[in-house]
Design a protein around this nucleic acid. Structure first.
Lengths: 182, 182
DNA sequence: CAAATTGTTCATTTTTTCTTGAACAAATCC
DNA sequence: GGATTTGTTCAAGAAAAAATGAACAATTTG
């Protein structure tokens, strides 16, 4: 029995079938997805990630990968990669569905958890690598000042200190954001 | 007198001239620029913007456009566009230099101002357009529920309310960030 | 006022990022 | 165990974003 149309209960109110197979997205779904595609792009993620999260967000039931592929008309590869990213952020979780071998995915909707995931996976690492770079800068400056004493090292030092203060502020800000979004 | 080499006082400690004209970036400058290129990409801006801001940040003197072009080896177009963006964020300001017709640019280094610019130009607009979209969603839902009463409108409504709460939280968060970074 | 300087704009090219889909691995089924 | 289903990976193609540079406008200068 190949080509099983979505096993899920059909979404009620979907527009009647047009040319290609799988049931069309209804207007509301389209607009919600569009909204998430936008939001997600702002955060620096690809469109497909917004599509996946958006559809899961506006779906009452958990959806398996092939339903996402079907309904969003994206490739299996995109769906798989998008889901991996979303899971790494804890923005989707997979749930067990009795009698179905496939993973089923649900959107996490606690803003705090979403923010925490984003902070952990996307922001923290930048702050940390920033701190490393700044440390390296300080070394370079010291070496340079030794080799070429004439340099404006006072100015450079001040600027690098500035960077360090920014980095510290940034690091302290993140947990406050997480807390605020609770 | 075409092809005037940079009029600015030569950066001390720059490595001795190699093939092409304009004075090379020194190691410290390169690393600072690299750091900003990275930071700026995280925020969703192009590399050239990071290069420009980075060089201005680590330069004691204000620099005119053609010095940026020369030293960073970017096109005049990129420099012009990058500067426009940076000015719109109040991340650089131009200052008057006596006896020089050209605009000279300096990096703004107050974190609060930088953050405020970013929030105003990049985040606020998304929050606002998000609010519009959500309003439109509500309308659609109402219309849909009327046309096709069967729909899961209770679920949809809950999800849209969720979006609205997120939007509100986001809007309230922004000023707190600005305040914290003061 | 003509020539030169400074900066902007935007169509084209280049670079980067995202998506695709076929090959593969792993798990489950009969 | 062989066949099927499910999901991942990754090289290649497609799409999106950024950079280029030549044409142009606006100043300024002599």
């Amino acid at each position: 029995m190949p080509q099983t149309a979505t096993k899920l209960a059909n979404r009620s109110g979907a527009s009647l079938g047009s040319p290609s197979g799988s049931d069309q997205l209804n207007l509301l779904e389209i607009e919600v997805i569009d909204l998430f595609v936008n939001a997600v792009k702002t955060l620096g993620f690809p469109k497909s990630v917004g599509e996946i999260y958006g559809l899961l967000f506006i779906s009452k039931e958990a959806l398996p990968l092939d339903t996402l592929v079907d309904r969003l008309q994206i490739s299996k590869g995109s769906a798989s990669q998008g889901l991996r990213l979303l899971r790494s952020l804890n923005a989707v979780t997979s749930i067990y569905v009795a009698g179905d071998r496939r993973d089923h995915f649900v959107a996490e909707t606690q803003l705090k958890k979403l923010a925490a995931g984003f902070i952990r996976e996307e922001l923290e690492p930048h702050i940390s690598s920033g701190a490393d770079r700044i440390a390296r800068l300080k070394q370079n400056l010291a070496e340079m000042a030794e080799a070429t004493p004439s340099t404006d090292s006072a100015f450079y030092e001040e600027q690098i200190d500035q960077l360090e203060r920014w980095n510290t502020k940034g690091r302290r800000l993140l947990p406050l954001i997480a807390k605020f979004l609770d």
